[in-house]
Amino acid sequence: MDVIWFVVFAVLFAGYFALEGFDLGVGLLLPVLGRTREGRDRMVAAVAPYVLANEVWLVAVAGTLFGVYPLLEGEVLFGLYPLVVAMLLSWILRDAGLWFRRRLDGFRWRGFWDAMIAFGSLGLSFCWGMALYAAATGFESPPVHPLGVLLGVVVTLLFAFHGWTFLAWRTPGVFGASRSGRSLLISGVVAALPAVGVLAGAMPYLLEHSAPAATLNVLSVMALPVAPVMLGAQVWVWRTFRPGKDAVPLPSFF
């Protein structure tokens, strides 16, 4: 059972990087590709239908981590406390930018919240790289380390590339390129590689720190009814909002 739950955790973690990665990537590219107000609106509208569905994966990752590996909760929160706070603040700023940017029509208002989207996306992307480095060292090395900073840069660049591929798939030709769904799948796999690499190296450690078998059995019973709903919602979102299917260019909630 511990091996099964490790696979579930790995799939959820890699899925978060592959899906939320293009959300953050589009935010990173907002100051680069969104040189006009219309361009920024198109970028946010392209990613808007996927944001909430993709963030569900992070909730599932956190729930699985603390349910299957309860002994790691203290290590993660204590060892990465400043980083966790920075990630939460970045998450709040990014989401606040998405929700508030169109609540008023002023140039400064939109410019401020667009900057918060970009800043929050940068903070989340960079901090994820440093968090992966700290996890790879067993939380024995501080995340603010030359190698941690390097991994932060790598993850940020991978997310930016994934976001660019997503825009080229979702809005072909609008930002100077067109990409197929296969290209988006490949860029998603590439964006998830750092997470997969760290998990592969940490597999023996995680298996040793799994919750007791009885706890894992209870978690299995609790997760079984939820898993099909989560997967079904993801399929619905991707089928509904694939290129050429959306009925309105700007969703009302962003």
Rank of each mutant, 00 (worst) to 15 (best):
L122A: 02
S187I: 03
V85C: 09
W113D: 05
V68R: 02
T137Y: 03
R102T: 11
M203W: 14
M116T: 10
G163I: 00
V3C: 12
P49V: 00
F9P: 03
F253C: 10
D23F: 06
W236F: 13
G27V: 09
L104I: 14
I117C: 00
A60S: 03
L132F: 14
F159Y: 01
A115K: 08
A45P: 04
A134Q: 06
R37D: 15
D2P: 03
A48N: 10
S121E: 03
G74K: 12
G74I: 07
A202R: 10
V8S: 10
E208A: 12
F139N: 12
V144D: 12
L30W: 06
G63Y: 02
W238N: 11
L24A: 13
L89V: 13
L199T: 08
V32Y: 04
V3Q: 14
D246L: 04
Y205E: 15
W113C: 06
V47H: 07
G25P: 02
G97P: 07
L52F: 15
M203G: 12
E20L: 13
L206E: 12
G21H: 03
G97Y: 01
R103G: 09
V218E: 13
S90A: 09
W99P: 09
R94P: 01
R170P: 00
L206Q: 12
G244C: 02
W113E: 01
W164H: 15
L224A: 11
M130S: 06
V8R: 02
L158T: 06
G188V: 07
L71Q: 14
L231K: 06
I117N: 01
D23P: 01
P225E: 07
K245I: 07
D246M: 08
S183C: 09
F112K: 08
W99N: 10
A48V: 01
M222F: 15
L207F: 02
S121Q: 00
L28D: 05
V47Y: 07
V221D: 11
F9V: 00
M43Q: 05
L193C: 12
P146I: 02
A53N: 10
F241W: 02
L65M: 08
S220I: 13
A233E: 14
G232A: 11
S141C: 11
A131Q: 02
L224M: 09
D95T: 15
P194K: 03
R242E: 06
V196H: 09
R94G: 04
L185E: 03
Y81M: 14
G129S: 05
L219R: 08
I4G: 12
Y16C: 09
W128D: 11
G111D: 00
E73W: 15
A18N: 03
V59L: 12
